[in-house]
């Protein structure tokens, strides 16, 4: 195939179509009565938090000594108490010799804090990561059971896979939270992670099974003929090859998991989706926030697919 042929007119066409779509969308939103307030969004990522420091007793400001960004304020009490406070130099609210009453603000310290969207993003990230790792382990074990010679292991794994794949994740979450959460006394976070992990595990198991079965029989025979037992042959010969083949569907599964994790907001885990809803209640910037939330999910998933593509390229050396 000749890929060097002039593709730029087609690229231009792609851009033109996308631009037209965006323009159409923009024109449509012009028609409705909606005021875009993008400026309200950034503070929900990160904001400058101010902590005011009150005077602990009646008295007066004895000395103020400035040390770069920080300033030390020495306060003398009417009953002879003495205490020193440190505030940010640009947050100072008193002068030397000023008379103070208990509760008067001496000054403020400022620091950057993560806003709810960033906190929610972080929750989604580690929740999905934990569920992915556990789901991978569950899937690997179940997948191996699925291809084992033992009928009980095989039936149990089929039962698990059918049970999980045949019911909606949302319902599973409710069962995990309300039923298992109550019976086994597990926290909502644990309930959320286990529901996601067990859900992903069922799909991973089927991917792993397909991967193992796609490896030619001769590979296992060659490994066995060299004296390896089944676990050794699995670890050194079959699974590395199966993993390489199943990397694209596995990556797809974990990308799905990140997106599906948005459902944990129904059991009141403050993930990215729930944070978004909370921010909307205080800003009324519904459109903007949902766009931002969508973009953040896209960010997570595209990073993951880039990583998967990179691993795939690394493994392709033996092709």
């Amino acid at each position: 195939m000749n890929t060097n042929r002039n593709t730029w007119p087609w690229n231009l066409l792609t851009i033109a179509i996308l631009f037209t779509l965006c323009a159409g969308l923009w024109a449509a939103t012009k028609k409705i009565d909606y005021t875009w307030r993008w400026n309200r969004v950034p503070q929900y990522f990160i904001y400058h938090d101010e902590t005011l420091i009150p005077a602990p007793f009646d008295g007066q400001v004895a000395t103020i000594s400035k040390l770069g960004d920080k300033t030390q304020i020495k306060v003398l009490g009417d009953n002879g108490e003495e205490e020193t406070f440190e505030v940010d130099s640009n947050g100072i609210e008193v002068f030397e010799g000023e008379t103070l009453f208990e509760g008067d603000y001496l000054g403020a310290t400022f620091e950057w804090r993560a806003g709810p969207l960033l906190v929610g993003l972080w929750t989604t990230l580690w929740l999905s990561a934990a569920a992915s790792i556990i789901g991978m382990v569950i899937g690997l074990i179940t997948g191996l059971c699925r291809v084992s010679n033992n009928p009980t292991l095989r039936s149990l794994s089929v039962f698990y896979i059918e049970l999980i794949r045949g019911t909606p994740l949302l319902v599973q979450l409710f069962i995990f939270y309300f039923f298992l959460g109550t019976v086994l006394d597990i926290s909502r976070i644990m309930a959320g992670i286990s529901a996601l992990a067990i859900f992903a595990g069922a799909y991973v198991a089927e991917i792993i099974r397909a991967g193992i079965q796609s490896i030619p029989k001769g590979q296992m025979e060659a490994a066995r003929s060299l004296g390896m037992n089944v676990p050794q042959a699995m670890i050194h010969i079959i699974l590395p090859q199966a993993f390489k083949r199943t990397l694209p569907p596995l990556a797809g599964q974990f990308i799905s998991l990140i997106k599906d994790s948005s459902l944990v907001s129904v059991i009141a885990i403050t993930d990215l989706t729930k944070s978004g809803r909370e921010v909307i209640t205080s800003t009324f910037a519904t459109f903007e926030i949902w766009f931002v939330v969508a973009f953040l999910y896209l960010l997570l998933t595209s990073v993951l697919s880039q990583v998967a593509a990179w691993v795939e390229r690394r493994l392709a050396v033996s092709d």
Partner: peptide, 27 residues
């Protein structure tokens, strides 16, 4: 008992050297 197969059955994810080294180490 060594065995040589019609379809070779070399381990495709291992280099030639690793193919020969692996079982020596594992087994």
């Amino acid at each position: 008992v060594g065995m040589v197969f019609q379809q070779f059955n070399l381990f495709p994810h291992k280099s030639v050297l690793q193919n020969i080294v692996l079982a020596q180490q594992v087994v």
